[in-house]
Every structure is written in C-alpha cells, then in structure tokens.
C-alpha cells in the first residue's frame, strides 16, 4: 500500500512530511515552501470545488493544488 499523501488529508487533519516526490524544480519549490521532511502540516481549507487546498505550515498559510499535494508523503 502506498503511503498516505497530503492530498488525502481532511480539513483540520494533520500529518508529518516524510518525503517529497516529483521532478527536481517541482519538489525543490515544495520544499522551499517549508514542506521538508519532519514538518507538521495541517489542512485548513478545501476550495468549494475540491481544489486547491489551503495548508498551514509553521504557523503560515499556503494554498496548493491537490495534484501537487499528492507528491508530499505523510506520516499520520
């Protein structure tokens, strides 16, 4: 079974980043936003149509698309 990803969180659920996948520029950008392994992430909001997702990372907020969030693996 594949590990759970950020895209599978429900609102107000949290997880700890274990791995960030994807192509280099893509994963670099996600990590630079603070999604480095070991970071606690909470899903705060889901747009009414189901995408994008608003995350809380280190007290700050950022929204990314569900498809992009699926590259971030979590540990619940």
């Amino acid at each position: 079974m594949s590990p759970p990803t950020l895209a599978e969180l429900r609102p107000e659920q949290s997880g700890t980043v274990t791995r960030v996948g994807g192509e280099r520029a893509f994963r670099r950008r996600l990590m630079e936003l603070g999604l480095v392994p070991g970071t606690r992430v909470t899903l705060r909001k889901v747009a009414p149509l189901g995408d994008p997702l608003e995350l809380e990372v280190r007290g700050g907020r950022i929204s990314i698309r569900r498809r992009d969030a699926a590259s971030v693996e979590l540990e619940r």
Partner: peptide, 9 residues
C-alpha cells in the same frame, strides 16, 4: 515544466 501552483489568501 510542471511547477506547483501557489496561492495565498
């Protein structure tokens, strides 16, 4: 190349 879309509210 695919880059993550980033939005801020």
């Amino acid at each position: 190349p695919r880059v993550p879309l980033i939005l801020e509210l």
